[in-house]
Design a protein around this nucleic acid. Structure first.
Lengths: 227, 227
DNA sequence: CGCACCTTTGAATGAGATCAAAGATGGTGG
DNA sequence: CCACCATCTTTGATCTCATTCAAAGGTGCG
């Protein structure tokens, strides 16, 4: 999508501040009223809820804290999985952006809708597929989103900084069972692992047995004209 | 939220057409390219994905087809659960609304974010809680949203037009197990049932054992100024 | 009144959880 | 540079919640 000069400038201004955090840091705490939203500049994070369910992985380019647009208390905890660099901005600043550039608002609405659809995919995965497919779907999502944000990650695989416990929290499984499923995937030569580095050996098969659909690219043709 | 005259008028125009559908009708079909979005005027619908997972219940006031803002092919099937009346409108018309009234765009973004949060709640429910709590959470959601949209539904209960099979599709359970959990809830005097009519006897208890959080009301204080 | 669909119930089975403990790995300070 | 400790991974045995399979009641619509 080609942005107008005004849009580009307003978006750029959102990233004028830069703040680094150590891995493990809690960026937004559940049930507290955060004052800021963030754009992820580098690193991985995850959003989790009660009962340790991991709801979402966040990669560079994502906006953190959108629930603040609907609720004064955060419904989720956002934790840095690796060291991260974030660009904070206020809700008022964001409102100003939406007011000045309705097309950007529509674009962000589109991105939020896409996010909602991806979440729905995960709901179906967790509600209706066996453990192995759930782990597979998570891996597919990690690869699709890493490719999009992190540059390469083509064939050399990805360093996944998640513990098996965290993969379990994301898939609704126990760490023990995640371990067995990952070993089974290695056994069947669908993936290869060494420590935290994972490589896809048979992506077609993984995608098909996990029922995975890539939701990383969205339509922009319908947007209102730029201002 | 108080709308400006222009906002009110533009919103009203979205509902200028009215189209009734019979119960059981498929309104939007997965993997097809729908041409329209809809506002629900009356009736219940549900959105489902492959594997029969029900992703979302839709009540009067909801917008159907938002995924069209991100994807040209619908990721979900929308089916009328009861007879319904819908107001169709085009994506272009919606884009016009967003362009003319950025504050409405921001409001719809807030509503979409709230929807995403509610979906995240269901993900946690399905991923991390036992069957009885999942059924309970669905009932809580139905009561909360019926109250909001359908008027009363205070103490006299609600007629739930879903089969136990459909409740299972929404909660990731089998119809047989849904039946056992519902009977257990009746047995423990948490709910009362006669045919498809359900009444809450001990809402506090149901909410607490289901970990339910009501996400039906959202913040609007941050919105940009109206135009 | 009959048929289709839905609910209810029982028994057997199985996927994943739980419990427990033994290897790996990596970061830290001496 | 190495030893130690915390954290993470792996493995086995057992248990349990939910599924599956099967069949008998209900309910309401045509």
């Amino acid at each position: 999508l080609r942005l107008s000069d005004g849009e580009r400038e307003s978006l750029g201004r959102l990233e004028d501040q830069v703040r680094p955090f150590r891995r493990g840091t809690i960026i937004i705490r559940e049930n507290e009223g955060p004052r800021e939203l963030f754009v992820v500049q580098s690193g991985w994070l995850h959003a989790s809820a009660v009962l340790r369910q991991i709801l979402r992985l966040h990669f560079p380019g994502d906006i953190l804290g959108l629930p603040l647009l609907a609720f004064s208390e955060s419904p989720e905890t956002v934790t840095a999985v690796t060291d991260v660099v974030l660009c904070p901005f206020s809700r008022e600043r964001f409102a100003g952006l939406l007011g000045d550039h309705p097309r950007l608002g529509a674009l962000i609405l589109g991105l939020t809708v896409a996010d909602r659809v991806a979440l729905a995919d995960r709901l179906a995965s967790i509600g209706r597929t066996p453990a192995r497919a759930r782990v597979g779907a998570l891996l597919c999502e990690i690869f699709a989103r890493t490719r999009r944000s992190g540059g390469g990650a083509g064939d050399e695989g990805v360093v996944v900084p998640l513990t098996q416990e965290e993969i379990g929290d994301a898939t609704g499984l126990t760490a023990v069972h995640v371990n067995r499923m990952m070993r089974a995937l290695v056994e069947d030569k669908v993936i290869a692992r060494s420590n935290s580095h994972i490589r896809l050996l048979d992506e077609k098969r993984l995608i098909s047995e996990a029922n995975f659909v890539d939701r990383t690219s969205i339509e922009t043709g319908w947007l209102p004209p730029p201002r």
